[in-house]
Design a protein around this nucleic acid. Structure first.
Length: 427
RNA sequence: GCCGAGAUCGCAUAGCCUGGUAUCGCGCGUGACUGGAAAUCACGUGGGUCCGUCCCGCGGGAGUUCAAAUCUCCCUCUCGGCGCCA
């Protein structure tokens, strides 16, 4: 959510951003109009309250002096004022609610270097990494590999939960665990603190970190308890500091979290989504930074560099992409994706997403820091995947496959696995 | 799940019984003193603001009252005790 100060002092900035995104400026005008009404309503209410406070204090004085007629007169006056205040208060609250409902739908201000484009076709290449593997046989898709090696149970999982859930078995499950440990170790060596978050959150905290429409399309709700399963550990790890003023000396706070992630994936269909590429539950190692606004763009580059170094060390071929205006979403001000090459699909597909959300989440969550001049300001929040394990498994399987369908383990993971080749499962 | 005690500005803490302007301290900021600093002293230090001897704010919500941090009820969380439990 954008700060009201921005609407009052630099509304041209918001308008210019909407032009760039190719969306209507109408909501901006609505916010300004509601704000003008609110200021007026609030002022009227304050004046009425002032009158009442003054009169009510006079009652205390009059009671001590015992002037019964005077007490009665003032009390009648105060009762009338009370009714008027209630009405004005109700009007003001309704205006705030209307204003913020519109304000929440207004997206973050983009970084000036975000490429302009209508949809994902407008994304541009940032850099290309690793060598594209060559096969002297027909490369298989990950679907074929998991089936011939019996590494994944999709149909049996469907019996007990539904489609898009899975059991991960044997060497592939062990590789998943190895990836988690390796990625956590890798990021911790760079000064991040490992944190395991809760995987459910309440509505209020969740509204602070995500787009409202996500409640319909992304999140699972746990009904009787009014909780939501987290879609990524970014959400609990960012929200954990809500309503706090952080000691400036503690910034930046750098965290690496691991959690199961739950997504409804409403409307996702198609051949490219089969297997374990797009599923309702997967595990993700995530980097989070809570930063002084002055440093956040440097941290954003650092997060990307961590990903590049990590994925280079796995010896995989991928590209880094600049996400364009039309593909950005509401919360991020700038976003890089890593897209791994999948020989089975003959395409580059998203495996990592690295965002600077600037103060957009922090405004909503009221995560502030104390500045030198003793005033408060919102922090910046950043997040980046390190590895989403199920997608990393797909990339490793497809790029490291052998002719017989077995898979070579990346060098750096061999110590975590205790073996260099993934063998088929016996059942 | 049951019983009890709590939640007050960045931190800490008083006010609650007995309703009438949010207290002391620490930290931080500004100024004075100084060659400079420390120490000391003064002022400031939740949000809003049309800058007022203004309005709001004491975990959240409702109620009683002319008036609620203060009284009543409901909820959330924390701490202690008991129970259950991987």
């Amino acid at each position: 959510m954008l700060n009201m100060k921005l609407f009052k002092e630099q509304v041209e900035l918001i308008r210019a951003d909407h032009e760039k995104r190719g969306i209507s400026c109408e909501p901006i005008d609505t916010v300004l109009e509601l704000e003008a009404q609110l200021v007026d309503a609030r002022h009227q209410m304050e004046m009425a309250r002032k009158e009442r406070n003054t009169a009510a204090r006079a009652i205390g004085v009059a009671k001590k002096s015992g002037d019964a007629a005077e007490i009665e007169r003032v009390m009648a006056e105060v009762t009338d004022l009370g009714k008027r205040i209630d009405e004005l208060d109700e009007a003001a609250n309704s205006l705030i609610e209307q204003r913020d409902r519109v304000r929440m739908s207004i997206p973050n201000i983009l970084h000036k270097e975000v490429p302009v484009g209508a949809d994902e076709g407008g994304n541009t290449q940032h850099s290309l990494h690793g060598d594209k593997p060559e096969f002297d046989f027909d490369a298989r898709t990950h679907n074929e590999l998991i089936e011939m090696n019996k590494w994944v149970e999709l149909e049996r999982a469907a019996k007990i939960t539904g489609s898009r859930f899975f059991f991960l078995k044997g060497d592939l499950a062990r590789l998943e665990l190895a990836l988690q440990s390796y990625a956590v170790d890798f990021i911790c060596k760079r000064g991040y603190t490992f944190i395991q978050p809760p995987v459910m959150m309440n509505r209020q905290a969740y509204e602070g970190v995500t787009d409202l429409s996500d409640f319909e399309t992304v999140m699972y709700g746990v009904e009787p308890d009014k909780l939501y399963m987290v879609a990524t550990s970014e959400h609990p790890l960012t929200a954990m500091y809500m309503d706090e003023v952080i000691d400036t000396a503690l910034l930046p706070i750098k965290m690496v979290g691991v959690s199961a992630c739950f997504r409804r994936e409403v409307g996702a269909h198609g051949l490219s989504d089969r297997g374990i590429w797009r599923v309702h539950q997967f595990t993700k190692v995530e980097q989070i930074i809570i930063s002084d606004p002055e440093d956040s763009w440097q941290h954003h580059e650092d997060l990307l560099q961590n990903c590049i170094d990590l994925w280079d060390s796995l010896d995989l071929h991928y590209e880094v992409v600049n996400i364009c205006t039309g593909d950005m979403g509401t919360v991020a001000a700038r976003k890089y994706d890593l897209e791994a090459w999948l020989p089975g699909a003959d395409a580059y597909k998203e495996i990592v997403s690295c965002s600077n959300c600037t103060d957009y989440q922090a405004n909503r969550l009221k995560i502030r820091y104390r500045k030198k001049d003793n005033t408060h300001a919102s922090v910046h929040t950043l997040n980046s995947t390190a590895v989403a394990t199920s997608r990393a498994l797909v990339a490793i399987m497809e790029q490291n496959q052998l002719e017989d369908g077995r898979v070579k383990v990346p060098e750096v993971l061999v110590p975590y696995m205790g073996k260099g080749i993934l063998e088929p499962c016996s059942f």
